[in-house]
Write a protein that binds this DNA or RNA. Structure first.
Lengths: 193, 193
DNA sequence: GTCTATATCTTGATAGAC
DNA sequence: GTCTATCAAGATATAGAC
């Protein structure tokens, strides 16, 4: 209308930078990737990139937040209950086998961000706490419906499932012939009544 | 005798370098650690360090091989059968909770080494293949003795257990209040007949 | 066996032109 | 919004003295 659609001028460039940065961080981690390298792969110089994202850490956080939005973690996750959420995790693993870049990104970064000095440390602490809580709730709901094998503690099962998914990603990245979803499905299947 | 015991002159320095390098790689990963930093922490200059280990990649591989020897992977592992090997893994997890440096080293490096261009890539591909094979054999022996719950495939169970251990390490590094051994024990316990 | 000194490259970030 | 030019700091590695 009377205004300027100038707000998202350069939105295309921003998106290109974020896509490229995701791929680069995935391949070599945050520490192993240079701002110059990302900029070059975008057809930019590095000052041009730093115009859009003032620091390298800002760029990393933008990549992570963008993926959170795209994945719709808040949306598609909060709505799922009980076994449906567990099924969703298996489906996600199957989906991830088709996008090695995303798997590499999280596998590499979650290990790197273990260091309290890493710019994404707080992000991953929160991420895991939230994920465990969601999965624990799902297990508790399954148990309430009588669908869980006796003797299984929801909180423990949640930690195990999240850990299993992470560990399988590393094995899969080292040897892509392994089927992540199959192993997860077998694990969850063995826990249901 | 008639010779020179000069062979292990400087062996003390080598050992000091390897210990320090392990700690440094554990804290910041391979890519995030500089040779200068390791040398300084040893009270050396970096050319002095590079006299003992010609390149940074050589140093990393020496650290890994030294730990393989110290841990006696070949020795203590090849001798264990069936449930005893699985118990040993639980015991190792309990032990690891007392040496975060080692956990950090392997968690960080195994993710980093996912990149085929990483100097330790081949090492970790082999390491995981061997570990899975040993654990699968242990599950098969347990099954043969009638100790495994029906419907559990040894090879799948091995991949799951190795993955669980890896994933729990990341969660533990992000939140050391979590008990790794407990979660592993619960998992294995649920698989035995 | 360890040093000083240095070569060479790459890094993240800034200044200022266009 | 993107550039050139530049900075200061860090990296790996080598040469050669002691």
């Amino acid at each position: 209308m009377s205004g300027h659609e100038l707000t998202d001028r350069g939105a295309g460039t921003r998106a290109l930078i974020l896509d490229t940065a995701l791929a680069a961080f995935a391949e070599s981690g945050y520490r192993g990737t240079s701002v110059r390298d990302i900029a070059t792969r975008c057809g930019l110089t590095h000052p041009a990139l730093l115009y859009h994202f003032p620091t390298k850490a800002d760029l990393l956080m933008a990549v992570l937040r963008r993926r959170d939005d795209a994945e719709g973690r808040a949306a598609g996750f909060a709505d799922l209950r009980g076994a449906a959420l567990l099924d969703h995790l298996v489906a996600t693993a199957r989906l991830n086998a088709g996008r090695p870049g995303v798997v590499e990104l999280y596998a590499t970064l979650s290990a790197e961000a273990t260091d309290p000095g890493h710019p994404a440390h707080a992000y991953f602490v929160d991420r895991y706490a939230n994920l465990r809580a969601s999965v624990a709730r799902a297990y508790a709901e399954v148990a309430h419906d009588g669908g869980l094998r006796p003797g299984i503690d929801p909180a423990t099962a949640a930690r195990q499932l999240v850990a299993l998914m992470d560990g399988l990603q590393i094995q899969w990245l080292l040897d892509p012939s392994l089927d992540m979803a199959e192993a997860i499905e077998a694990h969850v299947g063995a826990q249901l009544a």
